[in-house]
């Protein structure tokens, strides 16, 4: 028993590694039931009239892309399919390469054009202050776009967007931490009474339950939420008129992959639970033996 309590933690890392690699190689996947938080995220976008304008804030970086980028891609598919126009901003410096890659791959497939259907305003430093300034006056915050430095007033979409979020129906954020959804809620939700949706990392998800549904209409928490939302978007993808099938095929592949990941995730959690139980059993037995 002393040997078991003195177990080198590297054996645990090895066990987790073998489990994940083994299950990945086996290729088992399973669909997930959709929670009401994710279903509300989807329904809120579905309820928007065609041609509405939304603001999509990318508040993540490569470290959190595993959890948030699939939701980001699925959200763009959903918005573009529904003909909803997007003002794309970022408060994390490493986010713009992801946003450009996703929009350039997905939006043209639905026949959407830059400047009319989406604009890329890019990263703005300043955290809460930047968010407050975006709300107060988007023209002062972003005099030019991030794509090729075009003056913001020369972009047709921006003629419908004014100060104090005028013309913006919904604010979505892909939030990995600070600054993120909690700061957007404080600076935009509370101040301007904006309807808000969020996709967050699992670590940030427990903070969001307190804001739902009064200040947050719906959210996708971590990889679990991402998988559920991917299922909803992929299942309704057949209704779209699409000019290039490749991005849609990629979305379906990402959905499949995420469903596979959820099975691995479940077994990973079971391993952790088993280790916690085992650790406690050994601890109490050891205490009894000492007594």
């Amino acid at each position: 028993m002393a040997q078991a309590t003195d177990l080198d933690r590297r054996w645990i890392f090895l066990a987790m590694g073998v489990l994940v690699v083994g299950l990945f190689a086996s290729g088992v996947s399973s669909p997930m039931p959709v929670s009401r938080y994710v279903s509300d995220y989807y329904d809120t976008i579905e309820a928007l009239p065609e041609g509405s304008v939304v603001m999509l804030s990318a508040d993540f970086d490569p470290a959190s892309a595993a959890e948030l980028f699939p939701t980001y891609q699925a959200t763009i598919h959903h918005l573009m399919r529904r003909g909803i126009r997007v003002v794309n901003v970022a408060t994390w410096p490493a986010a713009p390469p992801y946003t450009r890659k996703a929009f350039d791959a997905i939006a043209p497939a639905y026949g959407r054009e830059y400047g009319t259907d989406w604009v890329e305003l890019g990263f703005k430093p300043g955290d809460d202050v930047a968010m407050a300034q975006i709300g107060q006056s988007i023209r002062t915050t972003y005099p030019r776009d991030d794509r090729d430095g075009t003056a913001i007033d020369q972009l047709p979409l921006m003629s419908e967007v004014g100060d104090s979020f005028e013309g913006i129906e919904l604010l979505l954020t892909m939030s990995a931490g600070y600054p993120g959804i909690l700061e957007w809620i404080a600076q935009a939700g509370g101040r301007y009474d904006m309807t808000m949706l969020a996709a967050t990392t699992a670590v940030q998800t427990p903070d969001l339950f307190a804001y739902y549904p009064t200040q947050l209409a719906g959210f996708c928490g971590g990889a679990t939420g991402a998988t559920q939302y991917l299922q909803l978007v992929a299942n309704s993808a057949g209704t779209a008129t699409i000019m290039d099938q490749a991005p849609l095929d990629e979305l379906l592949a990402v959905k499949e992959k995420n469903q596979k990941r959820m099975v691995i995730q479940m077994w990973g959690h079971l391993l952790i639970i088993a280790l916690i139980v085992l650790g406690n059993v050994l601890y109490f037995r050891g205490r009894k033996a000492v007594a």
Partner: peptide, 12 residues
């Protein structure tokens, strides 16, 4: 939730 996030990163 933290465990969920960390395992998700490993899987990725």
């Amino acid at each position: 939730f933290t465990v969920l996030g960390r395992i998700a990163l490993l899987i990725e």
